[in-house]
Write a protein that binds this DNA or RNA. Structure first.
Length: 492
RNA sequence: CGGGGUGUAGCGCAGCCCGGUUAGCGCAUCUGCUUUGGGAGCAGAGGGUCGCAGGUUCGAAUCCUGCCACCCCGACCA
């Protein structure tokens, strides 16, 4: 490779972009802030979708599709929602172009729409307009719907996968008869996200609730999972919102309960996006390129054949096809790279950069010895293993890689988590180690804002799981009583 | 949107300050031969609106003006 991957130490941000480019995950589009997701990147997304979709279905959700265009008037219905999204909406005002003799192709002034259309930044408004027509009785509830789609938020500053103007995601929208049931749903989906992050992505996450200032526009409570990146910054990896009756009221969505009374419907919404791919990259990858956890890797095992002459070639390829066939049979995503145009060494590097968990190399020497070379991407170790029982061995190594990536990420996260009891320590830790800083907070927006202004760290969440046996303490700034420590961090 | 940086072949860059023939280099690409257990060697070949638009000049990649894009740092966010 002419251009190497910048090391994480040299320039983390550049490293991130280099990994994406070298692994052929995505590239910038001609339109600022948008992204072309290449096959390697999209395949990861498809694996994420498959796993999540199954989890959604297993908990009774169905997929549906709502349109990309939302009448401008809809957005205005819920006050907090407008505040949150108004300043980042793409607005469609005209419906056609015409060729002008002087100016060329121009917007046809005669095609002005009667009402502007908003390209959805999220679908709450169109969904709740719809639900208001679907729901009359308690018998119509709950409604448990998820939607896989794309949304647009006109961002000032973008980064591939982490923040783009258009992104792919899923948004769940549920309607319930009671507050309790909606809250239960909110937390259930948060758990699903946490499970997905830890078991599929091998990314440990903190489950928590957002403070008012970080809350979703229109939510009563926003729950989140937060993950620690290798540069010590936190990333919000998923959110689940308890919307209360805010949208039901805005869209007049009521149902008749068992007592023959009209009542507003209780709501939730929850989502994860292609941002997860950014998290995946930033948690596991190294200076050699992408590192993928086996459960999400589009290719789990690649076999590179090695030979000198036609005779060796035939023998090696015959054996290689047998091996890959066995692996596929066992449900392992295996690939035989028999391309003649590239040499083995070149392929080794290619798959390393692309993060394939296991690479096998098979040559004449192995045929003679009944062995095969197995190299694992995460540790970059390679060893000769017996041909006999290879499939079982690979299953076990894949399992081990998945496990070991998670443990490594946990250990890193722990090394980047520090409890402090004074503002001085807070600032020192943030500067010297970064990561999560656990500190007592008095629950006021004033101290939160002051810390953000002075240190750029925000409250990532108030953890759901208790941190200390003894939760009492005092705010590091005001000295006022605190109910427990919260997670502070600089974040993406 | 403010501050800083960059834009020259697919990628990475030199040339620009100090204007002057056919705009170079590495990698990649194509052809041929030899090769193949960690990014092969040799020989030959192709590929350029020098980000865009104006201007200055006999002459602009180079100087001037405006614009655009990307990256980094801030303000806003999944």
């Amino acid at each position: 490779m002419a251009d190497a991957i910048t090391s994480r130490e040299t320039d983390y941000s550049q490293w991130y972009q280099d990994v994406i480019r070298h692994a052929k995950l995505a590239e910038h589009s001609p339109v600022r802030g948008c992204m072309i997701i290449r096959p390697n990147g999209y395949a990861i997304w498809e694996n994420m979708q498959a796993a999540l979709d199954k989890m959604f279905k297993d908990t009774g959700h169905q997929n549906a599709y709502f349109p990309i265009f939302i009448p401008q008037s809809f957005l205005a219905r819920e006050a907090a929602h407008v505040d949150g999204f108004a300043k980042e909406c793409a607005v469609v005002t005209h419906s056609r172009l015409i060729v002008d003799d002087e100016k060329g192709l121009i917007v046809d002034p005669d095609s002005r729409l009667e009402e502007n259309l908003i390209v959805r930044p999220t679908s709450e408004t169109i969904v709740w307009d719809t639900y208001s027509r679907w729901i009359q009785s308690w018998r119509d509830l709950p409604i448990l719907i998820n939607s896989w789609n794309n949304v647009v938020r006109w961002e000032m500053r973008t980064r591939l996968f982490l923040r783009t103007m258009e992104f792919l995601w899923q948004e769940g929208h549920t309607a319930h008869a009671t507050r309790e049931e909606a809250m239960e749903e909110t937390l259930q989906m948060l758990d699903i996200y946490a499970t997905f992050a830890e078991e599929f992505m091998a990314v440990p996450v903190i489950k928590g609730v957002k403070t008012a200032s970080e809350r979703f526009a229109g939510a009563v409570e926003t729950y989140c999972i937060e993950a620690m990146m290798q540069d010590g910054k936190s990333l919000q990896a998923g959110t689940s919102h308890f919307l209360g009756q805010n949208f039901a009221k805005a869209f007049n969505c009521q149902f008749q309960n068992k007592n023959n009374e009209q009542e507003y419907v209780w709501a939730t919404s929850w989502g994860v996006s292609t941002r997860l791919i950014g998290a995946l990259i930033m948690v596991h990858s190294d200076d050699q390129g992408l590192v993928l956890p086996p459960r999400l890797a589009p290719t789990q095992v690649v076999l590179v054949p090695i030979y000198r002459n036609d005779e060796d070639r035939d023998r090696v390829l015959t054996e290689a096809r047998q091996i890959v066939g066995d692996l596929l049979e066992a449900g392992i995503r295996a690939h035989l790279d028999a391309r003649e145009a590239y040499r083995p060494g070149w392929k080794f590097n290619e798959y390393e950069v692309q993060g394939v968990p296991i690479r096998l190399a098979l040559g004449p020497r192995d045929l003679k010895n009944g062995t095969i070379e197995l190299a694992r991407r995460d540790t970059r170790e390679k060893e000769g293993v017996p041909r006999d029982g290879l499939t079982k061995r690979i299953e076990s190594v894949l399992f081990d890689i998945q496990q070991s990536l998670f443990e490594k990420a946990c250990a890193f996260r722990d090394s980047k988590t520090t409890s402090v009891d004074s503002y001085d320590d807070f600032k020192t830790v943030l500067e010297e180690n970064g990561g999560f800083v656990l500190a007592h907070w008095d629950g006021t927006e004033e101290t939160e804002a002051q810390i953000k202004k002075e240190t750029k760290a925000t409250i990532r969440c108030i953890p759901l799981d208790p941190i200390d046996a003894d939760d009492s303490g005092v705010d590091i700034i005001s000295g006022a009583p605190s109910a427990g420590r919260v997670y502070f961090a600089r974040s993406y």
